[in-house]
Amino acid sequence: MYETMDELEASVQRKLYRIRDLVDDMGAVKVRETSPDGSITAEVDGNGALLNLEFSQEISRLSPEDFEATLTATARAAAAAAFARRADIVTAFNEEVAE
């Protein structure tokens, strides 16, 4: 395991720094998704919270129902991508810590 207290302390310190990096990396996740027709772009954070919406002129061609469906699908896709990115970050962290 550890030969000296200094080795143990250094190992714990490295893990602490890595945990701080994990928190920073997860907090930095932001994802933008644009609908296939280009009418709506949604930006979300790593928790899937909506940060920004952008609309192009293409929304004038959408019915209210299509607008709602496009908005929902685009925001959902952005949130799914953000969650996938967070999962990748956590997986990489777990693999590194397990070594």
Rank of each mutant, 00 (worst) to 15 (best):
residue 15 K to I: 09
residue 16 L to F: 14
residue 17 Y to F: 15
residue 18 R to D: 09
residue 18 R to Y: 13
residue 19 I to Y: 15
residue 19 I to F: 15
residue 19 I to R: 15
residue 20 R to I: 15
residue 20 R to F: 13
residue 21 D to E: 13
residue 22 L to G: 02
residue 22 L to P: 01
residue 23 V to A: 13
residue 23 V to H: 13
residue 23 V to M: 07
residue 23 V to I: 12
residue 23 V to Q: 13
residue 24 D to F: 11
residue 24 D to R: 14
residue 24 D to Q: 12
residue 25 D to G: 02
residue 26 M to P: 05
residue 26 M to R: 14
residue 26 M to T: 13
residue 27 G to D: 07
residue 28 A to H: 05
residue 29 V to P: 01
residue 29 V to R: 01
residue 30 K to G: 01
residue 30 K to N: 00
residue 31 V to F: 02
residue 32 R to L: 03
residue 32 R to Q: 07
residue 32 R to D: 02
residue 32 R to F: 01
residue 32 R to I: 04
residue 33 E to Y: 04
residue 33 E to V: 01
residue 34 T to Y: 02
residue 34 T to I: 01
residue 36 P to L: 06
residue 36 P to R: 10
residue 36 P to Q: 06
residue 37 D to T: 08
residue 38 G to Y: 06
residue 38 G to V: 10
residue 40 I to A: 04
residue 40 I to C: 04
residue 41 T to E: 06
residue 42 A to Q: 04
residue 43 E to L: 07
residue 43 E to N: 07
residue 43 E to Y: 08
residue 43 E to V: 05
residue 44 V to S: 05
residue 44 V to Q: 00
residue 44 V to M: 04
residue 44 V to A: 06
residue 45 D to T: 04
residue 45 D to F: 01
residue 46 G to C: 02
residue 47 N to C: 04
residue 47 N to I: 02
residue 47 N to M: 09
residue 48 G to R: 00
residue 48 G to F: 03
residue 48 G to H: 05
residue 49 A to P: 00
residue 49 A to S: 12
residue 50 L to Y: 07
residue 51 L to N: 06
residue 51 L to W: 06
residue 51 L to M: 07
residue 51 L to F: 06
residue 52 N to I: 04
residue 52 N to Y: 10
residue 52 N to T: 10
residue 53 L to F: 12
residue 55 F to G: 06
residue 56 S to F: 11
residue 56 S to P: 10
residue 56 S to H: 08
residue 58 E to F: 07
residue 58 E to V: 09
residue 59 I to E: 12
residue 59 I to H: 15
residue 59 I to S: 14
residue 60 S to F: 09
residue 60 S to T: 12
residue 61 R to Y: 11
residue 63 S to Q: 12
residue 63 S to K: 13
residue 63 S to F: 10
residue 64 P to D: 08
residue 65 E to H: 11
residue 65 E to C: 09
residue 67 F to W: 09
residue 68 E to F: 13
residue 69 A to F: 13
residue 69 A to P: 06
residue 69 A to N: 13
residue 70 T to V: 09
residue 71 L to I: 11
residue 71 L to Q: 14
residue 72 T to F: 11
residue 72 T to W: 07
residue 74 T to E: 02
residue 74 T to Q: 00
residue 74 T to R: 03
residue 74 T to Y: 03
residue 75 A to Q: 12
residue 75 A to G: 10
residue 75 A to H: 05
residue 76 R to D: 13
residue 78 A to M: 01
residue 78 A to E: 00
residue 79 A to L: 00
residue 79 A to Y: 02
residue 80 A to Q: 08
residue 80 A to T: 08
residue 81 A to C: 07
residue 82 A to N: 00
residue 82 A to T: 01
residue 83 F to R: 08
residue 84 A to I: 00
residue 85 R to K: 10
residue 85 R to A: 05
residue 86 R to W: 08
residue 87 A to T: 03
residue 88 D to W: 02
residue 89 I to C: 01
residue 90 V to Y: 02
residue 93 F to M: 02
residue 93 F to S: 02
residue 93 F to R: 02
residue 93 F to I: 03
residue 93 F to L: 00
residue 93 F to D: 03
residue 94 N to Y: 08
residue 95 E to S: 12
residue 95 E to N: 14
residue 95 E to I: 08
residue 95 E to C: 06
residue 96 E to N: 08
residue 96 E to D: 14
residue 96 E to P: 08
residue 98 A to I: 11
